[in-house]
Design a protein around this nucleic acid. Structure first.
Lengths: 121, 121
DNA sequence: GCCATTACTTACATGTTTGTTAGCACCGTA
DNA sequence: TACGGTGCTAACAAACATGTAAGTAATGGC
């Protein structure tokens, strides 16, 4: 997302890591907000301000950044209506909808094991 | 993992986010190396040096850090053999093994869509 | 003209993750 | 005595992710 020095170990390691289909997939939904955004969009198309309302703690900046990233990765489709004030709608693509069942399983896993590890914080 | 200022927005947001079972689950396997480590451990028990060999680009530091995190999260079990030179073996727990089918699906998703988004870098 | 609304963007500050380098402790072997 | 093998750890540095605050453009309503 940010511009990157291409020759650092950080970058070359990333390239190597992404060879793994699994890591590739998880990277697309990684980060703090993407999953929550996708979850909201699963139920219905949202405009920017609606997402903001449903995710009370995300800042406009992060919401915009994450939506751009999701769009670039082909997970979200953005539709702009040339009205005043502007209206922009976001919806999931086919590709993103395929995450549905996987997300459900992960969610079950999370719910099941959330209490398992109450080791020190 | 690192010590954290507990009252920052960063931290309080994290707490809120982790309310979501799905995000909770993904956070456990997030980061650069965890998935790769888990994948290696799926096939067999590994000692530290074996993992190092199979993941040529990870540094010892990161390997140690990730293994500790996985252990703390209950995904990996660590067994120390009091020999000289030391031997330490890592294996997946039940909890981690439950990821198996989910990982397979995610992997399929990754393989399928890797080529879909050859938009600019 | 002035303000509100919407969907952003920019510049900056803070916090986290990853990588670099060096070193430790143990013992067996040469 | 020096060295190697193993599994680490510590101090530091670079890169990235996230949060804060303010500003933008267009238009309609007052």
């Amino acid at each position: 997302m940010a511009t990157r020095k291409e020759n650092s170990t950080y970058s070359s390691n990333e390239k190597w890591i992404i060879e793994c289909d699994l890591t590739y997939a998880v990277n697309k939904i990684g980060g703090r907000w993407k999953i929550l955004i996708i979850s909201k969009l699963e139920s219905k198309v949202h405009r920017f301000s609606e997402l903001k309302k449903e995710l009370p703690f995300i800042t406009e900046r992060m919401l915009a950044l994450q939506l751009r990233a999701l769009e670039k990765d082909g997970l979200v489709k953005r539709t702009i209506y040339a009205e005043i004030p502007p209206r922009v709608e976001y919806e999931l693509t086919e590709m993103a909808l395929e995450f549905g069942p996987i997300f459900k399983q992960l969610s079950i896993w999370g719910g099941k094991h959330r209490s398992d590890t109450n080791s020190s914080s």
